[in-house]
Amino acid sequence: MQNKIEIKNLNFFYNEKQVIRNFNLNIPANKILSVFGPAGSGVTTLLRSLNRLCDLSPEARSEGEILLDGKDIRSPDINVTELRRRVGIVFDVPTPLPMSIFDNIAYGPRLKRKKKDGKISETVELALRQAALWDEVKDRLTVPAMSLSGGQQQRLCVARVLALKPEVILLDRPCSGLDPISTAKIEDSLTELKKQFTIIISPHNTQQAGRISDRVAFMLMGELIEESTNVEVFKNPKDQRTSDYITGRFG
């Protein structure tokens, strides 16, 4: 099993507050990894440090290594905009930009370089198909993305990331505001997508983690408590805290 990402001794601070502690984790390629834990465990920070979106906060500071294909993404010679294309992120609430459906998906590809519009429309169609949204929007690509329903908007955000042709997809509680049907659609497309991408998801509950993940990591107070296969963590948790959390004793 090949590792796409290796995190070594990661410590992360906002000002003086430490949100991630001595974190070590190997993330295998072409698998779905669920990272979960109660609110404030540092899951969002972890995901956001994988494409250095955390850099946008001036008070953020980190130590350690995050290797993507063996190269540290925190080293000074890394091109951050290029890194963010390789490691795309879907946020916890749908975040369509105030423009048409087509322009939303084409936003990333157009930033890269001027392509002929014919080529871009192929990219847009493929991304929308992969995110299982194409059939619902193919006749109204020019309407504002804000007019879609919440579930459609979130699949639009997935498609927007796919249009970047990334290697890794981060999803930060992508279904937290969605109904069960929209959630199922997103989960279905993720299972399909892991053939091509490495997927790291922060599920909105443990059931979702159980349904879709290959591997599961449990975080608490910024520390990794345990990481193993899906079955292993849910059936035979090694740590008492993990078992307390998944059986609902706290959380």
Partner: peptide, 16 residues
């Protein structure tokens, strides 16, 4: 602020 964050996350530079 979300628009800025989205744009950066899609590989946009500051000026873009």
């Amino acid at each position: 602020k979300t628009y800025r964050e989205v744009s950066f996350s899609l590989g946009g530079t500051k000026w873009q």
